[in-house]
Amino acid sequence: MSEKEKVLNPDPGVCVPWKVKMEEFGEFPGNEEIAKKEWEKLDDFAYNFIWFWAQR
């Protein structure tokens, strides 16, 4: 199994954890919290969209 196919088993409200994304960024010279906050907002939107279809 390649690194990209690794099972993430994300927590509720999460699709791709920020921690995983940070590892992929490698060096992050700016303010991590600014980027993290917006990443998690969009991630939560995606999570709600995905689970919407299962909660019928």
């Binding site: 099972v7 993430l8 088993n9 994300p10 699709c15 995905i50 279809w53 299962a54």
Partner: peptide, 13 residues
């Protein structure tokens, strides 16, 4: 069971 959200994306949708 191993990863519900990922299964929904990869198979259910």
């Amino acid at each position: 069971i191993a990863s519900p959200t990922e299964w929904l994306v990869n198979h259910y949708l």
